[in-house]
């Protein structure tokens, strides 16, 4: 197969899900005729019709609210939230209903909520957020974030097939990253992957920071530092066995995400490592992320977001420890 972009891989995944299961519905703002502001749903309405791929009024809370009603009616809704910063309008429906409806009714909610997330696109306010920790904190949801076209294709298939609700975070800055994909490869929810093997320290990343971590590993190699990179793919559930297996080798961990460090998902990873792998550690788990400040105006985002240098500094501290 020709190499495809992540945007195309997600489009193909939606296409295959729509073709494979008549209950799958795709809807949201501008997803129909336009094919989405990022063209992720390009051509889907043409193939599958206006009943299965449709534009909605501009109202995030009710986009998710109708997904609940449609799921109760037996559909498999795949709503899109146009940008990360607008999912807050739907927060109540996601937390109070999508996540808890099965608990109070016994009826499953096979809803996949797609959200482009993260920065590095030079956007105006509210278009570069990383809200994943709000959702990993919510029982009843599963939360995933692919980093490559192949994983985006496969994880989305798994998410849509899953009987439980899944928040599917798409690293929008990587939409145009290309690779060959193999649609027959399965990626189950809850499985991390070792993106690069190494022995000196483990860099744990997901979504947009995976390629950053890989860049950091290449740079470190020049200084004879060997970094292992783990791409979590799934935040909830979290694949601790893969993390601990890596720490058996490296004994040092650096977690990288774009979201602010305080209260961020990295804190959960660090705490889990200290619970389950304290004896493996030779340095405190380091966290590299966005600052505890609102996402800045775009000309400052490079300073705000984690970069190769900040990852390598954290690695140096970890290696020098003790």
């Amino acid at each position: 197969m020709e190499p495809v972009t992540m945007a195309k891989a997600i489009n193909l995944s939606l296409r295959d899900a729509l073709a494979g299961d008549e209950q799958v519905l795709v809807f949201g703002e501008d997803v129909g005729t336009l094919g989405g502001v990022f063209r992720i749903t390009d051509g889907l309405q043409k193939t599958f019709g206006v009943d299965r791929v449709f534009d909605t009024p501009l109202a995030e809370s009710t986009i998710i609210g109708i997904a609940v009603g449609l799921a109760l009616r037996g559909f498999r809704p795949v709503p899109e939230i146009q940008f990360d910063g607008f999912v807050y309008s739907a927060f109540d429906q996601i937390v109070s209903h999508v996540a808890k409806y099965r608990n109070r009714s016994g009826i499953s909610m096979p809803i996949t909520i797609r959200i482009p997330f993260g920065g590095h696109i030079g956007a105006v306010e509210h278009h570069s957020e990383s809200p994943e920790a709000y959702f990993t904190h919510t029982a009843g949801l599963k939360v995933v974030a692919p980093a490559t076209p192949g994983d985006a294709y496969a994880l989305l298939r798994s998410a849509i097939a899953d009987p439980d609700p899944v928040i599917f975070f798409e690293p929008k800055a990587r939409y145009y990253m290309k690779e060959e994909i193999n649609p027959s490869l399965e990626v189950p929810i809850g499985s991390a992957r070792v993106a690069r093997e190494g022995s000196g320290a483990t860099v744990i990343a997901y979504g947009p920071t995976v390629s950053l971590a890989l860049d950091a590993a290449s740079a470190a190699e020049k200084e004879n530092i060997s970094l292992e990179v783990i791409d979590l793919r799934s935040l909830s559930p979290l694949d601790m066995p893969t993390i601990l297996a890596s720490l058996q080798k490296t004994h040092r961990a650096v977690v990288v995400h774009e979201a602010p460090v305080f209260g961020g998902f990295g804190g959960e990873i660090a705490a889990r490592i200290s619970d389950d792998g304290f004896d493996l550690l030779e340095a405190p788990v380091a966290r590299v992320g966005g600052m505890d400040a609102p996402y800045p105006p775009s000309r400052y985002e490079k300073l705000y977001l984690p970069d190769v240098d900040r990852i390598l500094e954290a690695v140096d501290v970890a290696l020098a420890y003790g």
Binding site: L25, D51, S61, T62, I64, G65, I66, A67, V68, G69, L70, L72, R73, G74, F75, D92, Q93, S96, H97, Y101, R104, S105
Partner: peptide, 25 residues
Amino acid sequence: FAPLAVPVATQVPHAVGFAMGSRLR
């Protein structure tokens, strides 16, 4: 008969979504 919805008004989108589904069916 759907479960109770305590957060006020949040059940109304569910009713509409369910009805949209009936129409699709």
